[in-house]
Design a protein around this nucleic acid. Structure first.
Lengths: 247, 247
DNA sequence: CGACAGTTTGATGGCTCTCAACTCAAGTGG
DNA sequence: CCACTTGAGTTGAGAGCCATCAAACTGTCG
């Protein structure tokens, strides 16, 4: 098994008995399974392939089952902006709920499998099951809060704090899924990380080596080992760029 | 009437006959009005007062009826981040749907009135009226898309492009509400604008004078007149900070 | 082996932050 | 009516962080 899919395989083994059990849509997936067909429908995509494309007709929500996916937007002039990295259990496509098209492109960062909840199933679900609506609204709210946090990170913190926060976030997510919180593979490229954190690739690269020299990390290509997690946390508040607002 | 409330008064006159008619919650407000009491309940706050506070128990959604409101978050170390400026008709508190507390603080930027949809009403509404759930999900989706756009703006564009985009956004919002798209009052301070755009106050101030000297704007304190809207648009793509990301 | 994309490292410059002083308007109290 | 205070906004000078340009390096793939 290759390094870059180590976490994935581990996850698939752990979750094989009950597909969609560990996703963020507890009740909804239950409802779909009781309902009938839907929940099992899904698929797999290879690294670099798209789940959906920005501007494409809304086909429903996707739930990542294994692997990892990035969503990104393209401005009219072609400038890409990475919106988010999605790990197993996370829901993609919530931004499509405000219209009939997707507002971002979802790209598999490694071999990934997913299940899909079609627009029709979604409609039925919302009609029949009010609890599902609450769950979805909760998910959307959580994403909004996450975006707000990221805005604060990018807007207020220096480069080193951003990368530290990024790594700590990954660490937490892996821990939440039962993996090592200190050793994992990055499924995304430096370019993607840089774009996500609003930095230049070279800056990200320099920070990685800088963190290594400081004894915080041990990095070899995409393999990351966190040596001093408290040292990373200490960076979080440090890199502040401007003072508090008034009024 | 003072300069800083000019737009507000105008709006109130225009929308007085049907409260909540022009808000973003068309169907929901309808349902609430049919339902019974709720929709009319609301209140008014003076400049600087809070509608709700970050960490406070979720009391329901707020809809701005007049005036303008800013939402902002505070990090653990007290650093503020402006989340958004809200104009009449916009819904506040969607980020509270993922838990039982608000995740941002809502502050009135000028005298503002609002109506409130309490948690209980919201619950009843979601249970009785599936269409309301779709509307709320649509709203949340739209906010997500807006946040993504802002992230791209802050992450990828230079300072002048950010301010230009901010002003053009305000212009569009005013136009959408039937006001002049070229002449309006800023209800927020330079500090708030700077924080919103992830810039220093001084940079915002310098850009305003720079835009004036370039013949794009006519600014006097918080009064803004757009002289060359195409010139502003030309700035949008110009200030690019880094190239496109790869796969 | 050669091509190529991804990554790293170095040198340089510039955009924007920071610090500081000043202007201006509004409010306060005598 | 005026001195004083206060806060927002503006302007200037300087420095620093980080983007940009360039080149070397590495692993992968045909």
């Amino acid at each position: 098994m290759s390094l870059s899919t180590g976490n994935v395989v581990q996850f698939e083994i752990a979750s094989r008995p009950a597909a969609c059990r560990r996703c963020d849509l507890g009740g909804i997936c239950e409802a779909l399974r009781r309902g009938a067909d839907g929940a099992r429908r899904g698929g797999a995509v290879q690294r670099g392939k798209l789940l959906f494309r920005q501007g494409e007709l809304f086909k429903g929500l996707f739930v990542v089952r294994s692997g990892s996916v990035k969503t990104s937007t393209n401005a009219t002039d072609g400038v890409e902006q990475v919106v988010r990295f999605h790990m197993p259990g996370e829901v993609l496509g919530l931004d499509g709920l405000c219209g009939d098209v997707y507002h971002a492109t979802a790209t598999a960062l490694e071999m990934a499998s997913f299940c899909r909840i079609s627009s029709e199933e979604l409609d039925q679900l919302l009609t029949r099951n009010p609890e599902a609506a609450r769950e979805l609204l909760g998910l959307a709210g959580r994403e909004l809060v996450a975006e707000q946090g990221r805005l604060a990170l990018v807007g207020q913190r220096a480069a080193d704090a951003r990368l530290a926060a990024f790594l700590l976030g990954l660490s937490r997510e892996y821990a939440r899924r039962g993996y090592s919180s200190t050793e994992f593979n990055l499924s995304m490229s430096r370019q993607d990380i840089a774009n996500y954190l609003a930095l230049a690739v070279e800056t990200v690269s320099r920070l990685f080596t800088q963190f290594c020299q400081a004894g915080l990390l041990d990095v070899e290509r995409r393999r990351v080992r966190i040596l001093d997690i408290d040292g990373l946390r200490a960076l979080l508040g440090g890199g502040q760029r401007q003072s508090v607002a008034s009024s």
